[in-house]
Design a protein around this nucleic acid. Structure first.
Lengths: 339, 339
DNA sequence: CCCCCGAGGTTTTACGTATAACGTGCGACG
DNA sequence: CGTCGCACGTTATACGTAAAACCTCGGGGG
């Protein structure tokens, strides 16, 4: 009342609130921090809250972070948000973070536009911890030498210096895919694998090899985009030797490339060629026929990653987790063509 | 050398570096801040840098932010990153930010999982400014009363309290679409519009109405997902009256729904029904036939938004921009069926 | 009557950084 | 020969918050 809100002035500080409420800055901090029970009278607390509201007071996060030595901010390191899967991972992580008063900041992928030599330069926020996907290990090197707690998403528990791990059971996913196709009579396979190196793809390849032992399996690698995948698939389906009757893809986007290749070659899906994907993104329901694929719980994945990090920060022992996946049969997989 | 790096110790501060280099903390700050020319000798500067490297010194961002009163961090407010368009916007904004030593933090969408009542609670980082999409105006309300500089992406320059605007020329995009379809002989249209309220969709609707004056146009609204779009389209295509020969969609994802509806109804695209989208996301190249759509420069959009914010922060006058868009004709649009 | 205690605050300090203000020698110049 | 100024640093301070340590006053027990 005495001093009306300064018009062009800067943001009010806790001291301004204190002045307005006729108390000391410490009292403001106690009341607004919620630790005033038994230390400040109800009446005074009310006055402080009123003054804070009146002035539109917002605590200065930089000052708070400095004082407390922590920021309630986690860094999420993923290859690219334009990959729908990681967009969902982010959504889950951000939601879990928000529930605990945490924020999430993204580490821009190195294959993204900006070079961003120094990871901390782009992640301006001071950090409490890091969550990283196994598909972004190169970016992760930048964090060696940092004592930040690290949670790895889908990576080999051995070797990484991570404090905790959350994995997707992609081996089981691949087993379900191969089981499904074997049951449909397929014996000649093409494995369209991701060219990007990552533990998760190694696991898929191992599981596939183990399950399809004794059958005819060829492997081709492609970057994760439709054009390259189409080209790789077209080449593999036209070269010498008996043509595979099923193509198992490491990712839905690769499967979309196979659809394109099949159309060019005059092959019908699934009558002439069965196709399976991995991830179950929007894409899988949009293509015709719908894509048989493995549904990964992306949001849950991000959520668990964040919860694991919060647990580590709280000093709780890391409890390794592996999330189940599910086969989603759609129209792209059918009986193997007779001979 | 004297004091080896403390093993379980905390992060070294600039004072630790100063001690190790035998200088004062101020000198460390000067050298590492790059403002030492003419103030510190080459030899001393080298010693400081050496000591910093030795100790693995990282400046405390919270302290720096507090001291400088700014954070070099911007908030990006978008509906959902799982929408590929906004993932690209983020990529562009983050890249431009990184080039200027800025970081980007995302405001989790309100329709996302976490409620996140207080926007600043989830955006833990202190902020220098806000970039917001017109499709997230509801979330924006939370920032009223904040004196943070605001840049609006694709919104009406009038009315918003934004310091700058960057727009996409979606009216021109819609004109190109309608011109394309009119040229192919179409005279009966269905406009599958977004149910989400946003200036950008109003502009599209206005442009469409203006260009198609004198023809038969019906409008149906749908949320931005395949299932709802299919249902809406199927209903609109089967109700009474002469069937439209072309469906103009506000978004590629809606167009994917139309594909599904057409298949159900036994209509061929484009022979019986032409379909157009908007955005040109991955989806547009994956469907069969390829989707005729309007390409929006999403990454550039985000880049310009961030650059506009940086300009505002630098005190430069806001220069309104409108980015051009392009029609991408693919297989989904063909001549209107005879009669 | 004195001492202690609890309620209800206040004073003070520290977090780590950037920078304004302030020395301090030494060579040069009037 | 005084002193001016430059090269090279140092000392001191402020940013806004949280919280430990401290004060003050009134009442109750010994």
């Amino acid at each position: 009342m005495q001093t009306p809100e300064p018009l062009g002035g800067a943001r009010p500080t806790s001291r301004d609130v204190a002045r307005a409420a006729g108390v000391s800055q410490a009292t403001v901090s106690l009341v607004l921090g919620g630790k005033w029970r038994g230390r400040v009278s109800e009446r005074t607390a009310g006055a402080v809250r009123e003054a804070a509201r009146e002035l539109g007071y917002r605590p200065n996060l930089a000052a708070r972070n400095l004082r407390l030595g922590r920021t309630r901010t986690a860094l999420l390191v993923v290859p690219a948000l334009t990959n729908e899967f990681f967009a969902h991972v982010h959504t889950g992580a951000a939601a879990a973070a928000a529930r605990h008063g945490f924020g999430v900041v993204l580490y821009p992928s190195p294959d993204g536009v900006g070079p961003a030599r120094d990871p901390f330069a782009s992640a301006q926020a001071a950090l409490d911890g890091v969550i990283a996907s196994s598909m972004a290990t190169d970016a992760l090197d930048a964090f060696r030498g940092t004592d930040l707690p690290l949670v790895m998403l889908d990576s080999d528990p051995a070797g990484t210096g991570a404090a905790a791990h959350v994995n997707l059971d992609v081996a089981d996913g691949m087993r379900r895919v191969t089981g499904h196709l074997l049951g449909l009579g397929h014996r000649r396979f093409l494995h369209l694998a991701s060219a990007a190196p990552s533990w998760t793809f190694d696991v898929r390849a191992d599981a596939l090899a183990r399950e399809l032992r004794g059958t005819d399996v060829r492997t081709v690698r492609s970057p994760l985009n439709v054009a390259d995948a189409r080209e790789a698939a077209e080449r593999a389906l036209t070269d010498s030797g008996p043509r595979p009757t099923a193509v198992v893809c490491d990712d839905d986007i690769l499967a979309a490339g196979v659809y394109k290749a099949a159309r060019r070659l005059g092959l019908r899906v699934p009558e002439d060629l069965s196709v399976t994907g991995f991830d179950d993104m929007t894409l899988a329901t949009v293509v015709e026929p719908g894509l048989t694929t493995v549904r990964l719980p992306a949001e849950e994945f991000g959520r668990r990653g964040m919860e694991a990090l919060l647990a580590v920060l709280a000093g709780e022992p890391p409890r390794p987790e592996t999330l189940p996946v599910a086969l989603v049969p759609r129209g792209s997989s059918g009986p193997a063509p007779a001979a």
